[in-house]
Simulated assay, not measured.
Amino acid sequence: MRQGSDQRISQRTAFRQALSFELSVTRAGRPGEEPLRRQAVGIDLSAHGLGLETDCPLEKGELIKLLPGDNGNGVKLPVFARVQWVQADSRGRCRVGLCFLGFKGGEA
């Protein structure tokens, strides 16, 4: 997934749904601590990634775990993803582009 509609590697469809995700253990603190759980709203979805909005400031390259649920589009969660880009707004919210791990560009 790449920022900008002319750079996308696959077609996107609207995906308005509340999501939960966990930050990596290294970001959560000491090893053995529970991962930090945060909320987001899905914006769009493709075979390779997901766009979402959250108030959690994510960083490019960060790994997150999208939590269990059925999104109604046939994708079963949990799914691991890498943050490809982040765009913050003046309200303190972030628009985030994710690439599902296991696809070119989102290796793991």
Score class of each variant (00 low, 15 high):
Gln7Pro: 03
Arg8Asp: 01
Ile9His: 09
Ile9Gly: 13
Ser10Cys: 08
Ser10Phe: 12
Gln11Pro: 05
Arg12Ile: 01
Arg12Asp: 03
Thr13Lys: 13
Thr13Leu: 12
Ala14Lys: 06
Gln17Trp: 05
Gln17Met: 12
Ala18Glu: 14
Leu19Arg: 03
Leu19Cys: 08
Leu19Lys: 04
Glu22Arg: 03
Ser24Cys: 10
Ser24Thr: 09
Ser24Leu: 03
Ser24Gln: 07
Val25Arg: 09
Thr26Val: 13
Ala28Cys: 03
Ala28Met: 03
Ala28Trp: 03
Ala28Ser: 15
Gly29Ala: 05
Arg30Trp: 08
Pro31Tyr: 10
Gly32Asp: 08
Gly32His: 07
Glu34Thr: 15
Glu34Arg: 15
Glu34Gly: 05
Leu36Ala: 02
Leu36Gly: 00
Leu36Asn: 00
Leu36Ile: 15
Arg38Cys: 08
Arg38Ala: 01
Gln39Thr: 02
Gln39Phe: 00
Gln39Gly: 00
Ala40Glu: 07
Val41Trp: 01
Ile43Pro: 02
Ile43Leu: 15
Leu45Lys: 01
Ser46Gly: 14
His48Arg: 07
Gly49Arg: 02
Gly51Gln: 01
Gly51Met: 01
Leu52Asn: 01
Glu53Cys: 14
Glu53Leu: 10
Glu53Val: 15
Thr54Trp: 02
Asp55Glu: 14
Cys56Asn: 05
Cys56Phe: 02
Leu58Arg: 02
Glu62Phe: 02
Glu62Leu: 03
Leu63Glu: 09
Leu63Phe: 13
Ile64Val: 15
Lys65Gly: 00
Lys65Leu: 14
Lys65Ile: 08
Pro68Phe: 12
Gly69His: 11
